[in-house]
Nucleic acid binder design. Sequence first.
RNA 1: CGGGGUGUGGCGCAGCCUGGUAGCGCGCUCCGUUCGGGUCGGAGAGGCCCCCAGUUCGAAUCUGGGCACCCCGACCA
Length: 560
Amino acid sequence: MLARASQLFLTTLRDAPSDAEAVSHKLLVRGGFIRQLSAGIWTFLPLGWRVHQKIVQIIREEMNAIGGQEMLMPVLTPVELWEQTGRAEIAEIFHLEDRNGRRFILPMTHEETVTFHAKEIQSYKQLPQILYHFAVKGRDEPRPRGGLLRVREFIMKEAYSFDRDDEGLDISFRKHAGAYDRIFERCGVEVFQVQAESGMMGGKESMDYLAPSGSGENTLVTCERGDYAADLEIARGIPRAPEFPASLGAPAEVETPDVTTIEALAAFLGVDAAATSKAMPVVTSDGTVVLGLVRGDDRLEEAKLAAALGAAVRPATVDEIRAAFGAEPGSLGPISFSGPVLADEALREGQFVAGANRTGWHLRGVEAGRDFEPRFADIRESRDGDTCPNCGGRLRFQTAIEVGHIFKFGSKYSEPLGATFLDEDGKERPLVGGSYGIGPGRIMAALVEQRHDENGIVWPASVAPYHAHVVGLIGGEEIAASTASELAAHGFDVLLDDRVGRAGEKFADADLLGCPVRVTVGKKSLEDNAVDVRSRAAGDDTRVPTSNTVNWVVTWMEEQ
RNA sequence: CGGGGUGUGGCGCAGCCUGGUAGCGCGCUCCGUUCGGGUCGGAGAGGCCCCCAGUUCGAAUCUGGGCACCCCGACCA
């Protein structure tokens, strides 16, 4: 395939839009891959769509390889279907009406729709099934951001598996995990599989695929030795051991006037901040005030706390705190508090300082189990300095983009929607399902985040808009055109820069667009009957005889 | 939804405080020049200054009200 730059909708920009922050946002816009239409709503320009399509094709091939059957389900969806599963209430859903006032939604996923169709499955003999499609999703995000990182409309590959039982689902789940590994590998994007919260989708086993990047919404925690990876929200890092002061036989009150922060408390008492405790009162959805207690140098991880309590929580207000503790924030503690106390595991051992529930006073020598009876759970946010729960290695923290998610939803949708089949005994049973998503646009953004330099993008050959970028300079126009044709004839996607322009501008555009191989054809090398070839990643020219150009590129590509 | 910020040719910005014919750089068109890392010079085209209302002889500029977009947070399959 051969494209001529002189005829393409090529819209490179010298400057990035001033409001762009993320590298992927800047470079994809500058390179003319994408353009914004509205907040979180993006057009893929021809160049960007080529990349998107290449990613889509890789996904398609790997889905087909595990027996997936491609289909297409509609975007317009009658709201009644979602009312049956209770998901119509989700705030992120776009609602609209037709001319007769009939209500529709733009679905964020297609579980309801695919399960509606799965009702045609009647017998265990028709199972298992893997169905998938690439479809436009609508999500009324409260805050879109970062170019393609978080958008309100996007294409997602969604696959759905239907099995007769949990064992079958397990097999389907593992097939998808294998396919996902191959997809990300082929796309050239670095990804970690981590345990995930299932969030608003509900369900059981759930894995996220996180791609480390300079910008993103998740924090990926990995062990330096490579045997642990988790999302920060559930990461189980091991905190350093505190330096405890001498033990006391019983808690002792100490006046701490105007000391309301941990730093001030530790300094005032001359103790390690890790030998203090931090009281975080929260209120559950039923109105109970619960005291979350973490080590002084730790932060409470609300997601863990909510998971441990099995309920959504919010921070208590100052009035609620006064009513429940009889003291101001800054002097709160577990002793003499009548409500439930959920203490972090790190507080199991040793004696620490706690608020006295008396404004301006703390207690030294407080010991969990002796002085108060908490429930223990892991509720601290893992942080720099923690070690790996598996091997004791150091943990690393980096921002990441969620590029895929697989999870088991069981009969969560088949039961309310009545999608059942008959087993060998003639017994009616609900279909057991799984759901598997990948965002090609997010893979694209993650790739740019992971693979760029100061001049532009460095695409992997598998998803690059073109394999080779042939730059024709003055005096080299004809050889450039014939070289481009030859490369195209060998099956490469080739971009020929046949525009009238200076070398510098063409090189700058080539670097920005990021095709893996650049072939420069100009007078300088043609004097040696040669062209200059370079890989975008390595960045240095190799002079190759014109007669050998195609061979060189073929060989180079095979090495990739 | 809370906090902060920005709306002026395609992109990046100045002008606004102190009202008086709308400017700069890049890009674009044409001419010449240069020609392997965004040449140089000249001549041009292109703007309901986000919208509405008000104040004023006169509003990009002042006042009020909207809207849009960005960033931080909350939220997030």
